[in-house]
Computed example of a mutant assay.
Amino acid sequence: MPELELLDYQSHSSLRLDLANAGQRHFVQVVSEEIPLAATEYPILFTKNPDTGAFYAGAVMGLEAGTNLFAADGMLPGYRPADLVRQGFFLHEGRIAVAPGDPVFVPHGKPVFDEQGSATPALQQVQHAMQVLGRGLPETESMIARFVEHRLIEPIDITLDFDDGSRLQLDGLYSTSLDSLHALPDEAALDLFRRGDLQIAYIQAASIHHIRHMARLRNERLFADA
């Protein structure tokens, strides 16, 4: 955890935020309420926290670590997940804290406070993102726990071949098993439906088709850079 400071105008009036900060994020955590929006543009898959082994959901934005195929110039033109919006900001004892040394803060960025000490649109977006994560993380953990209970999460094999002869294999990713979902007893399926989990499961599984688009983007850039 980086060194944090509680955010206030007196201490951080000159703080400026670089919004073109998505270029190296290839996998961004999302919460359940974001999945219907994010899934229109990105594959949504599950992976495991390396420290706890717990599953979490994320938007796949790159096929290789450190590369975002949707934000070549660092700007993300499409849906921007809350975890990406709040880069450099954290929730500490119910208040927003900031890590001033985070590379997201640059002299030429967007101001966080205006001259009157009020939150700028950039900070308002961060505040909204923190609210989304605050309510969404526990809800998503509960949803994933139900998926695990019903054995609905399974590993997914993604191997991609490119025109230059290279091959990429994406490891450590998981998806919803529609076969297992369809085999659920009626009572369990009805419970997932009433909780909204069933909709999320189908949306997540359908979003995998975006992987093909990402492979085309990478293939085009291989030859554009040659």
Rank of each mutant, 00 (worst) to 15 (best):
L4T: 08
E5G: 02
L7W: 08
L7M: 08
D8L: 08
D8Y: 06
Y9G: 06
Y9V: 15
Q10D: 12
S11H: 13
L15G: 07
R16L: 04
Q24V: 07
Q24D: 14
V30W: 02
V30M: 09
V31Q: 01
E34M: 09
I35T: 01
P36Q: 08
L37P: 00
L37T: 14
L37V: 12
A39Y: 08
T40D: 09
T40G: 00
T40L: 14
E41V: 11
E41S: 12
Y42C: 02
Y42L: 01
Y42S: 02
P43H: 05
L45Y: 10
F46R: 04
N49Y: 04
N49F: 03
G53K: 05
A54N: 14
G58N: 04
G58S: 05
M61L: 15
T67M: 09
N68A: 05
L69S: 04
F70A: 10
A71L: 04
A72C: 00
M75Y: 15
P77R: 08
Y79H: 13
Y79N: 05
L84A: 11
L84F: 09
G88F: 02
F90E: 11
F90C: 00
E93V: 01
G94Q: 10
G94E: 07
G94S: 05
I96V: 15
G101S: 13
D102M: 01
D102E: 12
D102S: 13
P103S: 06
P103E: 01
F105M: 05
V106H: 10
P107A: 01
H108E: 15
P111T: 09
P111M: 06
V112N: 04
V112Q: 00
G117E: 07
A119F: 09
L123R: 10
V126R: 09
Q127C: 08
A129N: 03
A129D: 10
Q131E: 15
Q131D: 14
L133P: 03
L137K: 12
L137H: 00
P138A: 06
T140A: 03
E141T: 11
E141Q: 13
S142Y: 00
M143W: 02
R146M: 08
R146N: 10
E149G: 02
H150G: 01
R151Q: 14
I153Q: 00
P155F: 04
P155Y: 05
I158F: 11
L160R: 06
L160G: 04
D161E: 14
D161H: 15
F162T: 05
F162S: 07
D164F: 01
G165M: 01
S166M: 07
S166G: 10
R167P: 00
Q169S: 14
Q169F: 03
L173Q: 12
Y174M: 02
Y174I: 06
Y174S: 04
T176A: 11
T176N: 11
L178H: 03
D179Q: 11
D179E: 15
D179G: 00
L181M: 12
L184Q: 06
L184G: 06
P185Y: 02
D186H: 12
D186P: 01
D186K: 14
A188V: 15
A188Y: 03
A189N: 02
A189D: 06
R195P: 02
L198V: 08
I200W: 03
I200N: 13
A201N: 07
A201V: 13
Y202K: 02
Q204Y: 03
A206N: 12
S207R: 08
I208D: 02
R212G: 11
H213L: 12
M214C: 10
A215Q: 15
A215M: 11
L217C: 10
L222N: 14
L222T: 12
F223S: 12
D225A: 15
A226C: 03
